[in-house]
Deep mutational scan, measured.
Amino acid sequence: MAAGGDHGSPDSYRSPLASRYASPEMCFVFSDRYKFRTWRQLWLWLAEAEQTLGLPITDEQIQEMKSNLENIDFKMAAEEEKRLRHDVMAHVHTFGHCCPKAAGIIHLGATSCYVGDNTDLIILRNALDLLLPKLARVISRLADFAKERASLPTLGFTHFQPAQLTTVGKRCCLWIQDLCMDLQNLKRVRDDLRFRGVKGTTGTQASFLQLFEGDDHKVEQLDKMVTEKAGFKRAFIITGQTYTRKVDIEVLSVLASLGASVHKICTDIRLLANLKEMEEPFEKQQIGSSAMPYKRNPMRSERCCSLARHLMTLVMDPLQTASVQWFERTLDDSANRRICLAEAFLTADTILNTLQNISEGLVVYPKVIERRIRQELPFMATENIIMAMVKAGGSRQDCHEKIRVLSQQAASVVKQEGGDNDLIERIQVDAYFSPIHSQLDHLLDPSSFTGRASQQVQRFLEEEVYPLLKPYESVMKVKAELCL
């Protein structure tokens, strides 16, 4: 049975990233139509530049190519590739079939990587351009969430054990800070992308030097003109047959890092959902379990974690691919890159769409948070109580021993009897502590235990987050809708 299948058929496997999760716009960027249309555009740009620099290419040939950029006979191309065992030459023939007058000058002087690699770089750039505003929107939604809850005390956790208090907004800023680093890295790697350009079979530009009869300047002009037509500021000066596969490492490393950030955020949300302090959106008709109707599973956060793990592992592909590119190139890269580049971007696209949807509907339960604080705060307040007693004339050592005994009794009630923490009640009825009984409410005010959390939130948002989001103001209103 021949390899390949009808990918629109229910009898043929289709990647869930495309069929179930990723956005239509990201799927289109990695589609065959987008790819092969870009090949034709690159052939047109090459012909236009070659004509401008004096090669015998007519206006009629150029116009014929322009008129057929979208006229792609995919069936013919597939048949040609089956016959020739070469995808680029299959599309040269297919393009030439609908451009008979231009057929002889299509791909003039070029090698397969002229269309293959340059198209990949265009796709990487455009895919990054799709991700950047999506990530900015996630940051914006979380920034709104953090600002609104900047002063809401909550129990902090280290080692997932109760620690000092923080605020809900401050905790959210930990998430935002990681995503801001990801946004900066995505922008950097996007701006650092260079075009492969017009380089020939081993990167020496020998074929173009021959076409222009040894004119170095025209060869350099050709490279520059096509690079500018493709919208790049610069091209690699040095290439082998391909652009260095280190570029793929750079791009997928940034995406993998984004995956790590999203995994951490969504894990926190899942843990908070278990504590009943916070939940992701839950639709009115949504079913959490087929057997347990009360369940409210954090399905979206779980999906993000599941896909983020996949995204983090994909960076190993370009690392290994770059390491086995012998001399000017081997074909070890080809099949692998067809999979890992598309999957990385479709996965990143999915987790950003999902995280935006989550961040637009996060639900906080202040009463649950308050109750958990009441359970733990008495123990945390013991040092403040000791200091207040010393100020009232008591002995630190005597007070410490009193607190120690009462704390152990209260802990026994919590752990052995399943009761509430009654340390404060014990202190309130103990005559030894009568000098500070009137101060206990103040000493137990949760806001006095959150330090500068709310001020940190305000400063972080104003100095770091809002300036970073400013270039994306025009796209901030787009909502994230999930079908599944």
Rank of each mutant, 00 (worst) to 15 (best):
residue 235 A to I: 11
residue 203 G to H: 05
residue 280 E to P: 05
residue 98 C to E: 08
residue 344 A to L: 00
residue 105 I to P: 05
residue 234 R to N: 02
residue 73 D to A: 13
residue 244 T to M: 08
residue 441 D to G: 11
residue 286 Q to I: 00
residue 441 D to E: 13
residue 386 I to M: 01
residue 60 E to R: 09
residue 453 A to T: 13
residue 366 P to K: 05
residue 313 T to S: 14
residue 340 C to W: 02
residue 32 D to E: 09
residue 45 W to A: 10
residue 116 G to W: 00
residue 478 V to G: 13
residue 208 F to L: 12
residue 128 L to R: 03
residue 223 D to N: 09
residue 103 A to Q: 05
residue 272 L to V: 08
residue 188 R to S: 12
residue 289 S to Q: 04
residue 141 R to L: 07
residue 456 Q to Y: 07
residue 160 F to N: 11
residue 275 L to E: 08
residue 73 D to N: 03
residue 406 L to H: 14
residue 275 L to N: 03
residue 211 L to G: 03
residue 414 V to M: 13
residue 277 E to Q: 06
residue 395 S to A: 11
residue 85 R to Y: 12
residue 466 Y to L: 14
residue 388 A to M: 04
residue 67 S to V: 07
residue 249 I to F: 02
residue 472 Y to H: 13
residue 136 A to R: 07
residue 151 S to T: 11
residue 265 I to V: 10
residue 336 N to R: 01
residue 169 G to V: 02
residue 199 K to L: 01
residue 232 F to Q: 02
residue 57 I to R: 01
residue 174 L to W: 11
residue 17 L to M: 14
residue 221 Q to D: 12
residue 150 A to L: 04
residue 411 A to C: 15
residue 459 R to W: 13
residue 185 N to R: 12
residue 304 C to Q: 05
residue 117 D to K: 00
residue 39 W to R: 03
residue 429 V to H: 08
residue 353 N to W: 07
residue 407 S to H: 08
residue 8 G to P: 12
residue 57 I to W: 04
residue 311 L to A: 07
residue 42 L to H: 00
residue 118 N to D: 11
residue 130 L to T: 13
residue 151 S to E: 07
residue 2 A to G: 07
residue 142 L to R: 06
residue 67 S to H: 05
residue 403 I to R: 05
residue 20 R to G: 05
residue 232 F to P: 00
residue 40 R to Q: 04
residue 253 S to M: 15
residue 158 T to K: 03
residue 254 V to P: 10
residue 13 Y to P: 14
residue 347 T to E: 09
residue 173 C to M: 07
residue 432 Y to D: 04
residue 358 I to Q: 13
residue 278 M to R: 03
residue 457 V to G: 05
residue 449 F to W: 08
residue 213 E to V: 09
residue 298 P to L: 04
residue 227 T to L: 09
residue 106 I to N: 05
residue 95 F to H: 03
residue 189 V to K: 14
residue 20 R to W: 06
residue 413 V to R: 14
residue 323 S to H: 00
residue 393 G to C: 06
residue 475 V to P: 15
residue 134 K to H: 13
residue 327 F to D: 00
residue 347 T to D: 12
residue 389 M to S: 09
residue 144 D to Y: 10
residue 82 K to R: 12
residue 137 R to Q: 15
residue 383 E to P: 05
residue 28 F to K: 11
residue 165 L to W: 02
residue 380 M to E: 10
residue 478 V to K: 10
residue 180 C to R: 05
residue 63 Q to V: 02
residue 288 G to Q: 05
residue 46 L to V: 09
residue 98 C to W: 06
residue 9 S to P: 13
residue 330 T to G: 06
residue 448 S to F: 05
residue 28 F to M: 13
residue 5 G to R: 13
residue 436 I to G: 06
residue 22 A to M: 12
residue 156 G to K: 02
residue 326 W to I: 05
residue 12 S to E: 15
residue 143 A to D: 01
residue 221 Q to K: 10
residue 410 A to L: 07
residue 400 H to D: 01
residue 314 L to P: 14
residue 439 Q to Y: 02
residue 437 H to W: 13
residue 235 A to E: 11
residue 9 S to L: 13
residue 231 G to P: 01
residue 231 G to N: 12
residue 18 A to N: 08
residue 20 R to Q: 05
residue 287 I to T: 11
residue 357 N to K: 15
residue 271 L to K: 03
residue 158 T to R: 00
residue 360 E to F: 07
residue 140 S to C: 15
residue 406 L to D: 08
residue 55 L to P: 00
residue 193 L to S: 11
residue 227 T to Q: 07
residue 317 D to V: 10
residue 85 R to C: 14
residue 125 R to N: 04
residue 430 D to G: 09
residue 110 A to S: 06
residue 121 L to W: 02
residue 356 Q to C: 14
residue 240 G to L: 00
residue 160 F to M: 01
residue 42 L to T: 07
residue 469 L to F: 12
residue 26 M to Q: 10
residue 93 H to Y: 15
residue 3 A to S: 12
residue 395 S to I: 03
residue 470 K to Q: 14
residue 119 T to D: 03
residue 395 S to N: 09
residue 474 S to Q: 14
residue 353 N to P: 07
residue 378 P to F: 06
residue 83 R to Q: 06
residue 461 L to A: 02
residue 473 E to C: 15
residue 2 A to N: 10
residue 375 Q to I: 12
residue 372 R to T: 04
residue 356 Q to P: 05
residue 285 Q to S: 13
residue 237 I to H: 15
residue 116 G to H: 06
residue 51 Q to G: 07
residue 337 R to T: 03
residue 439 Q to E: 13
residue 212 F to M: 11
residue 383 E to R: 03
residue 188 R to W: 06
residue 321 T to S: 06
residue 9 S to W: 11
residue 67 S to I: 14
residue 144 D to K: 14
residue 262 V to N: 08
residue 113 C to L: 08
residue 373 I to F: 02
residue 255 L to Y: 01
residue 70 E to D: 02
residue 393 G to T: 14
residue 442 H to S: 13
residue 306 S to K: 00
residue 386 I to C: 10
residue 156 G to F: 02
residue 84 L to W: 12
residue 132 L to F: 14
residue 472 Y to T: 04
residue 10 P to L: 13
residue 399 C to P: 05
residue 398 D to F: 11
residue 268 D to K: 01
residue 480 A to L: 13
residue 484 L to F: 14
residue 294 Y to G: 01
residue 444 L to N: 03
residue 269 I to Y: 02
residue 387 M to S: 14
residue 430 D to A: 15
residue 301 S to K: 01
residue 354 T to I: 13
residue 400 H to Q: 02
residue 195 F to I: 14
residue 144 D to E: 11
residue 368 V to A: 04
residue 288 G to H: 11
residue 243 Y to V: 15
residue 249 I to S: 03
residue 472 Y to A: 14
residue 318 P to G: 12
residue 104 G to Y: 09
residue 65 M to T: 04
residue 161 Q to E: 06
residue 273 A to N: 11
residue 463 E to W: 14
residue 221 Q to F: 10
residue 364 V to H: 14
residue 36 F to K: 09
residue 105 I to H: 01
residue 161 Q to V: 03
residue 449 F to Q: 04
residue 226 V to A: 03
residue 247 V to E: 02
residue 191 D to C: 14
residue 96 G to T: 15
residue 323 S to P: 00
residue 347 T to W: 05
residue 474 S to N: 12
residue 458 Q to G: 13
residue 388 A to C: 06
residue 427 I to A: 13
residue 314 L to M: 12
residue 274 N to W: 04
residue 202 T to A: 11
residue 113 C to H: 03
residue 24 P to W: 07
residue 65 M to V: 07
residue 132 L to C: 12
residue 41 Q to H: 12
residue 13 Y to K: 08
residue 375 Q to P: 10
residue 136 A to W: 04
residue 310 H to L: 11
residue 70 E to L: 03
residue 26 M to H: 10
residue 327 F to C: 06
residue 195 F to A: 05
residue 216 D to F: 04
residue 310 H to E: 00
residue 455 Q to W: 06
residue 370 E to R: 12
residue 155 L to G: 02
residue 71 N to H: 05
residue 395 S to W: 06
residue 186 L to V: 13
residue 342 A to Q: 10
residue 333 D to F: 04
residue 461 L to C: 15
residue 150 A to E: 04
residue 345 F to N: 06
residue 5 G to V: 11
residue 361 G to E: 11
residue 26 M to C: 13
residue 339 I to T: 07
residue 387 M to N: 08
residue 279 E to K: 02
residue 103 A to W: 04
residue 152 L to S: 08
residue 463 E to K: 14
residue 477 K to W: 12
residue 435 P to F: 03
residue 190 R to W: 13
residue 154 T to K: 02
residue 100 P to N: 12
residue 306 S to L: 01
residue 89 M to S: 04
residue 5 G to N: 09
residue 380 M to C: 02
residue 204 T to R: 00
residue 397 Q to G: 10
residue 368 V to F: 07
residue 423 L to S: 06
residue 203 G to K: 02
residue 8 G to S: 14
residue 402 K to V: 14
residue 3 A to H: 14
residue 30 F to T: 06
residue 217 H to A: 10
residue 142 L to W: 12
residue 362 L to H: 07
residue 409 Q to H: 07
residue 147 K to A: 14
residue 181 M to C: 12
residue 460 F to R: 04
residue 232 F to N: 02
residue 290 S to V: 01
residue 361 G to R: 14
residue 156 G to I: 00
residue 313 T to W: 07
residue 375 Q to Y: 05
residue 404 R to L: 07
residue 430 D to Y: 04
residue 13 Y to Q: 15
residue 145 F to W: 10
residue 22 A to E: 05
residue 295 K to Q: 02
residue 245 R to Y: 01
residue 361 G to T: 08
residue 26 M to W: 05
residue 457 V to L: 11
